[in-house]
Simulated scan of single mutants.
Amino acid sequence: MKLTPDIPAPSAILEAALYADNLDAAEQFYSEVLGLERIQCINNRHVFYRIGGSVLLIFNPNQTEQPPLNPDMPVPPHGARGPGHVCLVLSRDEITVMRKHLLDWNIPVDAEFDWPGGARSLYVRDPAGNSIEFAEAHLWS
């Protein structure tokens, strides 16, 4: 239910951001371990990944807190400290495969369970401590 009917409702999340002080470790995790498609990398500032129609942004918070250097792209300073969270969609069978793959990389599972509505979730941590969830798409249905 829209609370304010005269304001347009966004149709999707275009991008989501996580923060990591060590971008090399983050890049190894997201590129090598998870096999995500890297679309941009600026040394020690950020690395971006395409996930379906969305983009996962991994920023070094020390760099994104700085004022923009390019006047043509005046992105305001931003950032976060401490672990964040992102949930990536996989089918139940893919979650099983991902679980084994992550354990093969010695990445411990934080939690794995079925929600009351029946959707399966698997949680792990990236090298920066961000909570990475893999869940079935019907989790929020």
Rank of each mutant, 00 (worst) to 15 (best):
E94I: 00
T4S: 06
L122C: 01
A119I: 09
I51H: 05
L102E: 02
R81M: 08
P127H: 06
L3M: 13
V33C: 05
L18V: 02
H138P: 06
L14H: 14
V89R: 06
V89L: 04
L122Q: 02
L34W: 02
N130C: 04
G79A: 07
R120P: 01
W115N: 13
N43D: 13
D104V: 02
L103F: 02
F113L: 13
Y49C: 01
G117N: 15
N60G: 11
L139Q: 10
L90D: 04
I58V: 15
H46N: 15
G118C: 03
A119S: 15
G129F: 07
S54Q: 14
P8M: 02
Q40G: 13
K100T: 14
V47P: 00
P127F: 12
E133W: 05
L56V: 01
D126E: 08
E37R: 13
P10V: 05
A80G: 09
R92E: 15
V86W: 01
P74V: 05
F113V: 07
I39T: 14
A25Y: 00
G35Q: 10
L14M: 10
T96I: 10
L23I: 07
A135M: 07
I13Y: 04
I58P: 00
Q28K: 09
L23G: 03
R38F: 00
A128E: 02
G79H: 01
D114H: 12
D93L: 09
N22E: 07
H85I: 10
R50F: 06
W140Y: 14
D126K: 05
L69A: 11
A20N: 11
D104T: 07
I107C: 13
M98E: 11
F134L: 05
E136F: 01
A9W: 00
R50T: 02
D104P: 07
V55P: 03
E32R: 09
E27G: 04
G82V: 03
P83F: 02
L139V: 08
L56I: 03
E15F: 11
G117L: 06
R50Q: 14
A17K: 02
M1Y: 08
Y123M: 08
E27F: 01
